[in-house]
């Protein structure tokens, strides 16, 4: 205790949390610039999430909900907050943890251990689905075949679909995934830089896919302690902005949310994959195209612009009127390694 008091004197700023006026502040909230203590941060953070859930009518009592759990900070926070709020406010939800095992030796093993700890800690049943079981290929196998260049495309496309398939196994009504504000802001910025209007309008939406198989809800955690895959220059740029003005990151997200898409902008039509039934704007979904390429020994199939032998490329030629050039240009701008909501 003595040490705590000594430190707060040395700090020179306000000595007490500006919410409770009792305890020593430990952080400055970028959102409000308030200096607050650990206990009050938890309290306002959890209460804000509860308000978002209520305001957006995210859940109904009795629903089964899968929490996408990677073992990272964002999904761990989500698992904790949602199981806590479910008890505190009697949402009446059946919660599950859903993890994807991409089959990357030395990488996933560790984070799956974290998820297994979450399973015990929060008492939530855990379902792990593996690329090996779903697709017959681990990421290690895929990298052996295609090298390191485009493997992020495979991993990203397979992961999105694996979540849906895992959700079907668990018979859940909804999937929730946790994201931090830095990631969302970065995604908004990248989508603007790429001119990807379809993803720009989707990437800040709190729910997606309400017509699709399973609606997904996105929580943006105001995470100041979130290790994450480094996505290059855009990340450093927004962190630089944040240093000048702490609210910049939340403002970028707000801009993303407030974007209005002109009605004259041609948006890709969403249909279903003829092969597996997953949502797709093409004849075959991306996962099926990539998988077909792997199985036929043509791993470049489906990467970048359509090539000969690509089932959707063939489709474009035969049926120009259905998909049209707008769809194709959006398709060709998909970059590997991006969060793709």
């Amino acid at each position: 205790m003595e040490a705590g008091e000594a430190k707060s004197k040395k700090a020179g700023g306000p000595r007490l949390c500006c919410i409770c006026n009792l305890r020593r502040p430990v952080l400055k909230r970028p959102k409000t610039l308030q200096q607050i203590c650990r206990e009050c941060f938890y309290e306002v953070f959890e209460e804000e999430i509860h308000q978002v859930i209520v305001k957006n009518h995210l859940f109904k009592s009795g629903e089964r909900v899968a929490i996408g759990a990677s073992g990272g900070k964002d999904s761990t926070v989500l698992a904790y907050v949602l199981s806590e709020l479910n008890k505190r406010h009697s949402y009446g939800l059946d919660l599950f943890l859903l993890s994807i095992d991409e089959g990357i030796t030395g990488y996933r093993d560790d984070s799956l251990e974290t998820v297994k700890r979450n399973e015990v800690q929060y008492g939530l049943p855990l379902q792990i689905v593996s690329y090996k079981d779903l697709y017959g290929w681990t990421m290690d196998d895929i990298v052996k075949m295609i090298g390191l260049k485009n493997n992020c495309t495979f991993c990203g496309v397979f992961r999105r679909q694996a979540l849906d398939r895992g959700a079907a196994l668990l018979k859940v009504d909804k999937i929730v995934t946790g994201h931090n504000a830095d990631d969302i802001a970065e995604t908004v910025l990248l989508n603007i830089l790429r001119g990807d209007i379809a993803r720009l309008s989707r990437c800040t939406s709190i729910t997606t896919g309400e017509d699709g198989p399973i609606p997904r809800y996105y929580f943006s955690t105001e995470c100041i302690y979130s290790p994450n895959a480094y996505r290059g220059f855009a990340r450093e740029f927004i962190k630089d902005l944040e240093r000048l003005r702490p609210k910049a990151i939340l403002d970028i997200i707000k801009s993303g949310e407030d974007f209005r898409i002109a009605t004259t902008t041609k948006m890709p039509e969403q249909g279903t994959c003829e092969r597996c039934g997953y949502i797709s704007s093409q004849k075959w979904c991306k996962a099926c195209v990539l998988l077909e390429g792997l199985n036929r020994g043509l791993p470049k199939m489906g990467i970048g612009r359509s090539r000969a032998g690509d089932v959707n490329g063939d489709l474009h030629n035969k049926n120009e009127s259905k998909s049209g050039p707008t769809v194709k240009s959006i398709e060709s701008r998909k970059q590997c390694g991006s969060l793709d909501f």
């Binding site: 430190k7 700090a11 700023g13 502040p25 430990v26 400055k28 302690y225």
Partner: peptide, 12 residues
């Protein structure tokens, strides 16, 4: 992030 004795260094 930099924490000095569990406190964000922005505060100190």
């Amino acid at each position: 992030l930099v924490l000095v004795n569990d406190c964000d260094w922005e505060l100190s």
